[in-house]
Design a protein around this nucleic acid. Structure first.
Lengths: 355, 355
DNA sequence: CTTTTTTTGATAGACGTCAATCATATCAGT
DNA sequence: ACTGATATGATTGACGTCTATCAAAAAAAG
């Protein structure tokens, strides 16, 4: 029950070699005969030896160095990410984790790739970035990987790239969920959903849209889709287009916004005449304006990817990768679904990752 | 930027005392003049010293010893909790955390209290238990606390007890959320919700019920409540009562089950004639039968408290408390809302707490 | 001023690992 | 059997903390 964990000395003894040799094996320092390597490996397996990471880090005064590259701009979601990161910064320092946040222009894969290339000079343990689909970016990631840096995509993945891990929600699933909730909110009756995205080229938006339309098609029960609006994630643009769409098509019973720029959407809803029943509205990311709209009863549901948890998970995974514990399974994040009643308190209350 | 964290030697030097004295202060060994204590405390504050927990644990070969007391019985939810705990057990051992699971009879506060009393003999760092409202339980908790054991309630709290922390969802909020979703699913039309609980005496069930009825009353828009059914969390009992209720009141348009025993509820739904539109169904906890019912389209929504996350969080908090970092803020857990489309994979894929 | 008590300082060993050094063994090839 | 390469063993100091011991200094008591 209270069996002791074996140390490297135990392993060496069990393998019939000296501590030095065992050490040479687990830290691949080379210059060890094939036979000895095998014996040490066997001893490790038999005893179930696991390196004591705390002791190892202590001996080296090691500090984990991670970089988070976040798109800059007025996007509330990413601003919140930055805030969460800065809040955990000090707590992490205690645990010998140094997190640096770098900003790059949003939607600019070239700039992002360039940033990564610059990083590959420094000595660091891991990088987390918001993915995009771009060959230059793939190259930059490969380059980092070659230098032994753990690379992890956050929020959005980089398709077919050599990143170790994607930490974020499945956007197709999120879209399908939105579709189901919309159907549910129609209470068995028909209707027409107005889909709003930032851009069809944005992978996450496209996936959400796809998910929603699939669900509507499969089990919609009379809920159809109006033509898709591309709002470019800009509040004013979204506002104009949605306003027009509602005028053009009075049959619209619901709005699904898969992207950002929803402050504009909220403005349209505020201006609706109070006598007509407003459309059912589902949108993504709990940010100040969506929270307010939810509280005011202007919208019905918010699907949120819980950035706090994403950050926390990303940090856990980065650390595990830096510790060479590469058992990195995919990490599923379950998006939260918010209504008026279950809004969390605003305080970003992540304590400090994990001890 | 890459400032080094100060060590206790730094503190001692800065305070103008020896390492031994500084050590006596932070580990309250006594025999230190008031003046020196003050000077050390000041130095700690000025330098921002935080003791290196990893080094401290290493020096003592310390193993964290935690006990989870889980109600036994056929309840799928608690079975799943046990499973999650056994899955993380080995991974935790690596990080020098030893978790023991103890089973006690469900709904038996006396047995639970007795179990805690027995525990208070052993040397352990923390206990997690599923709370109930009982004076004997409160006493047992106080006793543990006196011995310096961290005590944390999981899933359900113990009202007004000396536990350090409650890790679980807010059941009133969960009920309010259910209410909102039910209203939404009525699509603006009226209806009548059939509420099912295990027992009105069960605090969590009562809170959920209260939350739902509040929301219906405040903004229900014609959605009312049928008399509450007490199913005692037993499948057969629930089945019989619900079947009868649906016969008695054909106006019922929805069912909200706040407790367990939902396999019986699902059986009723299966037997409904295919021509009539079935009621909207919302229930709690994603367990095998609720998952299947969701997939089969028999029910609409499941509110789940994500036991994996609860366990993980509980462990994090226990460890932090054991490390004397008592900055224990309340820990909000956002329940997940599942529909057919966003069911997670079944694999319980928690890796290993946190490094 | 001495004696006793309280408070300090100095130091050492342990924890498990990493990194380094130096001496010795083993094995080729000749 | 000798050289030279390669492999191994033995050992040491660091990392930051805890625990312990012993001597020395300062304060209080007589």
């Amino acid at each position: 029950m209270k069996r002791q964990l074996p140390t490297l000395s135990d392993v060496a003894r069990h393998a019939g070699v000296s501590y030095a040799t065992a050490d040479r094996v687990i830290n691949d320092r080379g210059g060890v005969a094939e036979k000895s390597v095998r014996r040490v490996r066997e001893a490790i397996a038999e005893l179930g030896y696991v390196r004591n990471v705390a002791a190892a880090n202590l001996s080296q005064k090691r500090t984990y160095r991670f970089v988070f590259v976040i798109p800059e701009g007025p996007n509330s979601f990413f601003q919140y990410l930055r805030q969460v990161l800065s809040e955990v910064h000090d707590a992490l320092l205690i645990e010998r984790v140094d997190v640096v946040v770098k900003n790059v222009r949003a939607f600019d894969a070239g700039a992002l790739a360039q940033c990564l290339v610059e990083l590959s000079g420094e000595t660091l343990d891991g990088v987390a970035l918001v993915g995009m689909d771009d060959p230059k970016l793939r190259d930059a990631i490969d380059r980092l990987k070659e230098q032994g840096v753990a690379v992890l995509t956050l929020v959005a993945d980089v398709p077919e790239a050599g990143r170790d891990l994607y930490v974020g929600i499945d956007n197709v699933v999120a879209g399908r969920t939105a579709g189901r909730l919309l159907i549910l909110a129609h209470g068995g009756r028909g209707g027409r959903v107005l889909p709003v995205v930032g851009s069809r080229a944005a992978l996450d938006h496209a996936e959400r849209l796809q998910g929603m339309s699939e669900t509507l098609a499969e089990t919609g029960g009379g809920v159809s889709m109006a033509p898709v609006i591309e709002g470019r994630d800009l509040h004013d643009h979204v506002e104009r287009l949605v306003r027009q769409a509602l005028l053009d098509d009075p049959e619209i019973t619901a709005i699904y916004s898969a992207g950002a720029g929803n402050a504009g959407l909220v403005r349209v809803l505020e201006d609706l005449p109070p006598d007509v029943s407003r459309p059912v509205v589902v949108l993504h990311e709990l940010v100040p304006h969506s929270r307010r709209a939810l509280q005011d009863g202007l919208i019905d549901l918010v699907i949120d990817q819980r950035p706090d948890d994403e950050i926390k998970l990303a940090l856990e995974c980065l650390r595990r990768m830096a510790d060479r514990m590469d058992q990195t399974q995919p990490v599923p994040i379950v998006p939260a679904i918010y209504v008026r009643e279950n809004l969390p308190d605003t305080i970003a209350d992540d304590q400090n990752g994990a001890p």
